[in-house]
Simulated assay, not measured.
Amino acid sequence: MSRAVATVLGIGHLRPASGTWASAATVAVAVGLYQAGLALAVPVLFVLAVLAGFWAVPRYLAGRGDTDPSEVVIDEVAGQLLALCFTVIPLWRHDVADLALAAWPGWVVPFLLFRLFDIWKPWLVGRADRRHDAAGVMLDDLWAGLFAGLGSAALAGLYHGAIEPWL
């Protein structure tokens, strides 16, 4: 069971860039839920992914030499969901009906920023990654998700507050 959770039902075995595949699948699920009128399922899934990840990752890594194998992608799922919460919830609160096409920056920007922070590993993301333990596997992506979410919100605020009025 821990392997199924840690690899998100095998998505972690997709190559190349298993983390990007997991993030893309997460975005697709989140957009689908939003389009189906289940926007609040995204933050619920975030909480469930965090809990599942902190349960599964230590069990999956037990007795292994590699402390962060590429097939473990539940951390990417949790981080990507966190980043998406920063745009999905405000769009839902403003009754935006179409996230897929009309509000596409609401999922594209969090995806791109999350992948950037997850790969680049600035500041707290890198510090968590250097822990080389199960908690670090989860924490680096949660920090990346937080930074991506904050960056997405800041860019949306900049666009809607400073750029859009001039268009």
Rank of each mutant, 00 (worst) to 15 (best):
W120T: 06
P43L: 12
L112E: 00
V42S: 01
R131S: 04
D68A: 15
A78K: 00
D66P: 11
L81Q: 04
V47M: 13
L112M: 15
L99C: 09
L61K: 03
E71C: 14
V125T: 15
F46P: 02
A83G: 14
F117E: 12
L113S: 04
G65P: 09
V72R: 09
D66Q: 07
F86H: 11
L48E: 06
A52S: 02
D68E: 15
L82C: 08
L40S: 00
L38D: 03
D75R: 05
L38K: 07
V57E: 03
G126F: 00
R115C: 04
P43H: 10
A62E: 03
L99W: 02
A36I: 03
D75I: 04
A100R: 05
Y34P: 01
A41G: 08
A102Q: 15
I119R: 01
G37T: 08
L99V: 05
A39G: 08
D75K: 08
R115D: 08
P58I: 08
Q35R: 06
V77Y: 02
V73W: 09
P58F: 13
A78P: 00
W120C: 11
P105V: 12
V47F: 10
P69L: 11
F111H: 04
P43M: 11
R59S: 13
P90V: 07
I119K: 03
G126I: 03
W104K: 14
V72P: 01
R115F: 09
I89K: 08
L82Y: 01
I89Y: 03
L113I: 05
F114D: 08
L61Q: 14
F46Q: 07
D129V: 06
F54I: 02
L61V: 13
T87K: 11
L84N: 03
V88H: 04
L38M: 15
L113F: 11
R115A: 01
V42H: 09
A103D: 11
R131G: 10
L61F: 08
G37Q: 12
K121T: 04
G106R: 12
V88N: 06
P105T: 06
V125L: 07
G65S: 12
F46M: 14
G63Q: 14
W107T: 05
W123S: 07
P105G: 03
A103H: 13
V50Q: 06
E76K: 02
I89S: 01
W104G: 09
I74H: 02
A41N: 06
P69T: 15
Y34M: 06
E71H: 05
R115W: 07
W123G: 00
P110K: 08
R115Q: 12
V88C: 06
V47H: 01
L81G: 07
D66F: 10
L91W: 13
L99P: 00
A52W: 02
G53Q: 10
L40N: 09
R130V: 00
P69Q: 13
L116P: 03
A128D: 02
A78F: 01
T87G: 11
L82Q: 10
H94G: 11
V72A: 12
R127C: 01
D129R: 14
W92I: 04
W120D: 10
V108I: 13
A62H: 12
A36N: 08
S70Q: 13
C85R: 09
S70T: 10
L124A: 15
A56N: 00
A128N: 04
A128M: 00
A78H: 01
A103P: 04
V108Q: 03
W123A: 06
H94K: 11
F54V: 03
F54C: 11
L48Y: 05
L82V: 05
D75H: 08
P69Y: 08
A49E: 14
